[in-house]
Amino acid sequence: MRVLVVEDDRNGAETLRRTLLAEGWMVDLANNGEDGLFMASNDAYDAVICDIMMPKLSGYEVVRQLRRKEIWTPVLMLTAKDGDYDQVDAFDLGADDYLVKPFSVAVLTARLRALIRRGRPERPAILTAGTLSLDPAAHIVKRGDTELALTPREFAMLEFLIRNKGNVVSKAEILRSAWDVNYRGDENVVEVYAGYLRKRIDTPFGCKALQTVRGVGYRLSADGDGRG
């Protein structure tokens, strides 16, 4: 088995290398995100272990660009950041698993073996609503042929809406999906992000796909592009 470790902490990277060598794996090291992306894009690996906070390119960006290139090598992300938002962002961008530092070496190797046993995930289907399309793995949203730039939170909210296209979903349901179960803030944050989404997916194209159902929630139009 061949594993790529992308980690800017050279001591930590060397510890991982020795640990994995002891497990019988071949290991390559990259000390920044740019080198890691190049190596993962040009060589065949059974898995990639990738830190999030790195120079040149973050781990988030490494995973995002790999998935955009349709490279489906399993990615285990490592970070000192601990929070549901960070995990959501990592998974939304196409990561397959996530460990917070400090972590048990035994847990790391067990998670890595599980990823390798599963193999490369199949490319998920592209979700559509009229001329709007969303690719969950490549983290790409398009209106027709135009690619749209969304933040991770906007992407998560749109993914939930498009999976429920044609149905009315409440603010609480959107919060549980696009934020996290422990969120205790004002539900009106959903209204704010609905406004952001309209400016991305509707307004520039003369569409009205994202509809407000007063007193209930939101619905993403399932009939064509929502014009009218």
Rank of each mutant, 00 (worst) to 15 (best):
R2S: 12
L4M: 05
L4E: 03
D8Q: 00
D8F: 00
D9P: 00
N11Q: 13
A13T: 09
L16K: 00
L16N: 07
G24W: 01
L29K: 10
G33R: 03
E34W: 13
Y45K: 06
Y45S: 04
V48Y: 02
I49Q: 02
C50R: 02
L57W: 00
S58T: 14
S58D: 05
S58L: 04
V62P: 00
V63I: 13
V63W: 01
R64W: 01
R64T: 12
Q65Y: 05
R67S: 02
R68A: 11
E70P: 03
P74Q: 04
P74S: 06
L76M: 03
L78H: 05
L78G: 02
K81I: 11
Y85A: 09
D86R: 05
Q87E: 13
F91C: 04
G94Y: 02
Y98A: 05
P102W: 01
S104I: 09
S104D: 15
V105T: 14
R113L: 13
P121W: 05
E122S: 15
E122K: 14
P124Q: 12
I126G: 11
T128C: 08
G130N: 06
T131P: 08
L132K: 03
S133H: 11
S133G: 14
L134E: 14
A138Q: 06
H139N: 11
V141L: 05
V141I: 06
K142S: 06
G144Q: 05
T146H: 07
A149V: 13
L150G: 03
E154H: 08
F155H: 07
F155G: 03
E159A: 12
L161C: 09
I162R: 02
R163G: 08
G166Q: 05
G166N: 04
G166M: 03
N167W: 00
K171W: 00
A172Q: 09
L175W: 06
R176F: 02
R176S: 11
S177N: 12
D180H: 14
V181I: 08
N182D: 10
Y183A: 01
E187A: 06
N188S: 12
A194W: 03
L197Q: 09
K199A: 15
I201V: 14
D202L: 04
T203I: 10
G206P: 15
G206V: 15
K208P: 01
A209I: 04
T212P: 02
G215N: 14
Y218R: 11
Y218V: 12
Y218M: 12
L220F: 06
S221R: 00
S221H: 01
D223W: 03
G224K: 07
D225A: 15
D225T: 12
